[in-house]
Design a binder for these strands. Structure first.
Length: 423
RNA sequence: GGAGAGUUGGCAGAGUGGUAAUGCAACGGACUCGAAAUCCGUCGAACCGGCGAAUACCCGGCGCGCAGGUUCAAUUCCUGUACUCUCCUCCA
């Protein structure tokens, strides 16, 4: 949520900034018109309420003195009716203003490359050697099926497309990867959290998934409950409607959870393999900090996610997403993309974002500064990392000519000493 | 799932159809070399609006879990609902 006062005071600045995110400037004008009308009605309504309060006091006095108050009561009967009518109108207007504001994305940071489509992202850095395979690399789903550790057919039978079973050492590898991530994260100072996987509408609104992106998630029938599309939702909402004691900042959380996504609109994309599933595991990182530190925290968050890939020995690069490619809530996003030999390309495995005060304002998460004033915290989130995609990357990058897969050194202890997955 | 009790400031805790007690904590001041104690004062707010450069004053609205209703007037009465606690039931 953007600051309505800022929109009111700097409409041209907001229009210019949000135009880079495909927001029509007319939307801002429409919002401001509604807001002006709303404030006009507020003044009217509150003037009448002040009058009612005054006269009510007088009535109270008269009654106490056993004097006649019928005239005043009759007069107030009308005023109250007027107030009621006006407030009904005002309620509608308030909802409209709120709804319009809630659909506006965050203001991009000045350093974010401007781009109105997916291209134009800027590569920040590269790391690692792409594996030099002297055979035709197989896709991870082929490797997994051949080894009998991934079963997409039965996933489809039991649930549908974009579901699978991990079997045997496949399930073990998934577990090894997320335990490795969680251990690394907690060692770096993140507090491990095991949150709810089903959340209410207020939470979905607080992190910005609602009201705009309802079609992307799974909701429980006839209930205001949603399967989390990312652990970011329960982690950020942990402090919803709270004031975080200043001495606790910065707060660093990490959690392993499944993530549930309907993938509406992505029909035909990544239909095979572990890249795009309706249910996948992800280790998420969330940070709350003071505004002045959030850009440093974003850099540290990104570097930490990179370190995980480095320890796994997977080649990757880091890109800064363009204004229109970033998620709704982000002011800046760095994506980590890991190398996939079979596809001969980089694929996203982590997305690290600074949402500045955007989520904090929606979710009312504040702290008291040294002057005792309440300020919105800045909230950041990043994958550390997507587990399924990490498993896919390992299968492709560590595959051998005979169809077996070497276990990365750091995972061997987590695999019970297994160094190679074979048939 | 059933029955009952509860939800009021940072915390504790009264209350009533007509200005939301009191205590603790906190903050400011007095006293003191300084502190403690004591005394005086401030203290609902993560909300909205007006005036403003202001997240400074001031004014108004709003405010006793949330949403409605009755009323000139609701923290109080009515309805619904969420959550917490206790007991029963059921379960892992």
């Amino acid at each position: 949520m953007l600051d309505l006062k800022l929109i009111r005071q700097e409409p041209d600045f907001i229009k210019e900034k949000l135009a880079t995110r495909n927001v029509d400037p007319a939307d801002i004008d429409a919002l401001l018109a509604l807001d002006a009308k709303r404030r006009e009605l507020i003044v009217k309504s509150e003037t009448m309420k002040a009058q009612r309060n005054t006269v009510s006091d007088e009535i109270s006095q008269l009654k106490r003195n056993k004097e006649d108050a019928d005239d005043k009561i009759k007069e107030m009967r009308q005023v109250s009716a007027d107030i009621k009518a006006l407030d009904a109108e005002l309620d509608t207007l308030k909802d409209q203003v709120h709804d319009a504001a809630a659909h506006l994305p965050n203001i991009p940071n000045d350093n974010v490359p401007v781009g109105l489509d997916e291209d134009g992202s800027v590569e920040l850095r590269q790391w690692g050697e792409k594996p030099n395979l002297d055979f035709e690399p197989k896709a991870h789903w082929e490797i997994g099926e051949d080894l009998g550790i991934l079963d997409f057919e039965r996933g489809a039978k039991v649930s549908g497309s974009r579901y699978l079973y991990y079997m045997g050492l496949g399930a073990r590898l998934e577990r090894a990867v997320y335990n490795f991530f969680l251990d690394q994260n907690t060692e770096a100072g993140f507090t491990e959290v095991l949150p709810p996987y089903i959340v209410n509408d207020d939470s979905m609104y607080g992190t910005g998934q609602f009201p705009k992106f309802k079609e992307d998630v799974y909701q429980l029938r006839d209930e205001d409950m949603t399967l989390i599309p990312t652990a970011e939702v329960p982690l950020v909402n942990y402090y919803r409607n709270e004031v975080i004691p200043e001495e606790k900042l910065p707060v660093w959380f990490t959690a392993l959870t499944p993530a549930f996504r309907s993938e509406a609109g992505s029909a035909g994309r990544d239909t095979r393999g572990l890249i795009r599933l309706h249910q996948f595991n992800k280790v998420e990182m969330v940070k709350f900090c003071k505004p002045e530190n959030s850009w440093d925290e974003l850099e540290a968050l990104t570097k930490h996610a990179e370190m995980l890939l480095q320890k796994l020995g997977l080649a990757y690069h880091v890109i800064t997403l363009t204004t229109s490619d970033m998620s709704f809530t982000a002011a800046m996003t760095h994506d980590l993309e890991v190398w996939f030999p079979n596809q001969n390309t980089y694929r996203e495995i982590s997305s690290c974002s600074n949402t500045t005060d955007f989520q904090a304002r929606r979710a009312h998460i504040q702290y008291r500064d040294d002057k005792g004033k309440l300020q919105y915290v800045h909230a950041l989130n990043g994958s550390g990392l997507a587990v399924g995609r990490a498993v896919a990357a390992i299968l492709e990058n560590y595959q051998n000519a005979d169809g077996s897969v070497t276990v990365p050194d750091v995972l061997v202890p987590y695999m019970g000493g297994v160094t190679r997955i074979t048939k």
